[in-house]
Write a protein that binds this DNA or RNA. Structure first.
Length: 116
DNA sequence: ACGATGACAGTTT
DNA sequence: CAAACTGCCATCG
């Protein structure tokens, strides 16, 4: 019997694998990641997966390249990570405007490399 | 079992 | 253009 647990872990693994494919200097939204995995309206789940990441263990995963649909960083209750994420992105060439949002039309990852 | 919360998103006011 | 509202799914008290 297939426990739902397998699907959850599979989803988590898929999210991490996909995020790991995001090239430096580009970004992807939670909804975009979810949509690529066939879960268009489950963007929140993607956020949950990334929320469970640990610094040092999943260091291979560029979690900072995942932002919200507005092109900004979602972390109202964690200013520390907010700053870290923004710094990492700026270090890769992503420019944030005065509103704290970057231009998605320009930095959004198309994800074509996944279909190879 | 139920209601509240959350690293979201799309639409409406 | 910004705030509010609603929908979606999983986790927590």
């Amino acid at each position: 019997m297939v426990g739902n647990r397998e699907e959850k872990e599979g989803f988590r693994a898929a999210v991490l694998a996909l995020v790991s494919r995001i090239p430096a200097g580009e970004v992807a939204t939670y909804g975009q990641i979810a949509a690529m995995l066939g879960a268009a309206n489950q963007a929140r789940r993607v956020g949950m997966v990334l929320a469970g990441l640990r610094h040092g263990l999943d260091s291979e995963v560029p979690w900072h390249r995942v932002i919200n649909a507005a092109g900004g960083i979602s972390a109202p209750n964690d200013a520390h990570r907010f700053i870290v994420q923004r710094s990492l992105l700026e270090a890769e060439g992503v420019v944030f405007g005065a509103t704290g949002r970057c231009d998605l039309r320009r930095y959004r990852w198309d994800g074509v490399s996944v279909f190879s």
